[in-house]
Design a protein around this nucleic acid. Structure first.
Lengths: 234, 234
DNA sequence: CAAGACTAAACTGTCGACAATCGACGATTA
DNA sequence: TAATCGTCGATTGTCGACAGTTTAGTCTTG
């Protein structure tokens, strides 16, 4: 057995974990649109840019492949996933399914602390609504919903939400600015929280449906209006 | 425009796709329990056994890592995921969420053809109930539920179901034989299909809840009885 | 005898290299 | 002129190697 000094709470200094870092950077590049949908991901290029060899880049790419951000074409390389209108519908359909459930669970687990966290996040939403930073607004919106999934207490559900969110951010980043009236959006979060506090499953589901459904229709409309990618799915 | 000789119906010869093959074999080894939970996956060993180098093995392992079958410990290697009682609950909770939704969607999309496919699958369930092949029974049960997800028509939902199913198969394979009375199990699929044919969402959800909930309780009970893995989660 | 220190083997992380393959571009032919 | 073929550069798939770390086993010491 190995001796260990008792844990002191140090944040486990960054295990170099090259693959993880590369994966994070690649993910950023994809969701921020710096690698646009359909773009070829040249291993040697990424490797050179990051100052590493191709091996870690390939492994990171495999992770993103399984996550759905990249598509692997054998002998042709990795490509950034393209989204069709169908994909938007699939993502929102699944998101609706997940968030309904998450909200009901969150209501069951709700404590004064977690309730306050949700309330504070809505405040943040209202504050950022004044700023002219669409990316920030999307981010804070996302954090509210993520909070619900955290409170739900199912790690797999949370991971699924994160996966869906990263896909959605790709799409939204693609559309450009999303919110017509950020304040309106911020307000529509309130009845969701109210329903969760109240705790009646039917009402929670109804409000989540309303809230997510609104975003769904909105994004769907924008994607249909500005369809810069009607090409083949590959 | 490009000229092409007319298609002749050649069966698109097998993409060797070494990584994919390795991933499939590894997945099998894991869900079949040949690599038991907690076991270390030695890259060189797998590579030698399969007659390939370590690079494809590592890439395949990354895929399984993202899928949740393996856990990567930096500088220590890949390990087969261990399951706690919490995990069972998480998986079934999410499965319930997914299958409720899938069943409702399936009802909406149901055609005479797909309905017959479901009926035939229930027949298969009854037939395999006579055989003494637990693995086969689990497999056919799984195929019924997967069929519902296929009919639902959301590819992401289907992939999620497959992921959950592979985790579940790990657990079930761990427990050994699952079904007390296979015929009883086969029968409990019938009201689910009946509800889907009928098409009332509330009733569908109720029967799915009943059906999955039964499996949940059963698996939970068995896992609690035979807990061969109460170790740290690592 | 138990706990800790030391040593050697095994394994991972990463790299550079090489063959196979793909895609583009120009040459050829009807 | 347009379609097809051939060639060449670029890129992927895979491998073996090496350095650094972890692990297991042995030995020492209180």
């Amino acid at each position: 057995m190995r001796t260990m000094s008792p844990p002191v709470g140090l944040p486990a200094l960054a295990d170099t974990d090259l693959v993880g870092q590369v994966a994070r950077l690649l993910t950023q590049a994809v969701v921020q649109g710096r690698l646009p949908p359909g773009a070829k991901v040249v291993e040697a290029g990424i490797a050179r840019e990051l100052g590493v060899s191709r091996a870690p880049v390939r492994e990171a790419a495999r992770l993103l492949e399984r996550q759905g951000l990249l598509v692997a074409h054998p002998r042709r390389g990795f490509f950034v996933r393209k989204f069709e209108v169908d994909d938007i519908d699939e993502i929102y359909d699944l998101r609706l399914c997940v968030e309904r459930h998450a909200a009901v669970l969150a209501a069951r687990n709700l404590t004064p602390e977690t309730r306050d966290m949700l309330r504070r996040q809505i405040d943040v939403l209202h504050r950022t609504a004044d700023l002219d930073e669409p990316a920030r607004q999307v981010e804070e919106d996302y954090r509210f919903h993520r909070l619900i999934c955290e409170i739900a207490g199912n790690r797999r559900l949370l991971r699924l939400f994160d996966d869906l969110a990263s896909e959605l951010r790709m799409v939204i980043g693609l559309i450009g600015r999303l919110y017509d009236d950020p304040h309106e959006i911020a307000r529509t979060h309130e009845p969701v929280l109210a329903a969760i506090e109240e705790g009646h499953p039917e009402r929670i589901v109804a409000w989540v449906d309303y809230h997510i459904g609104h975003a769904w229709r909105e994004v769907g409309r924008l994607v249909r209006e500005i369809p810069p990618h009607a090409a083949t799915k590959d």
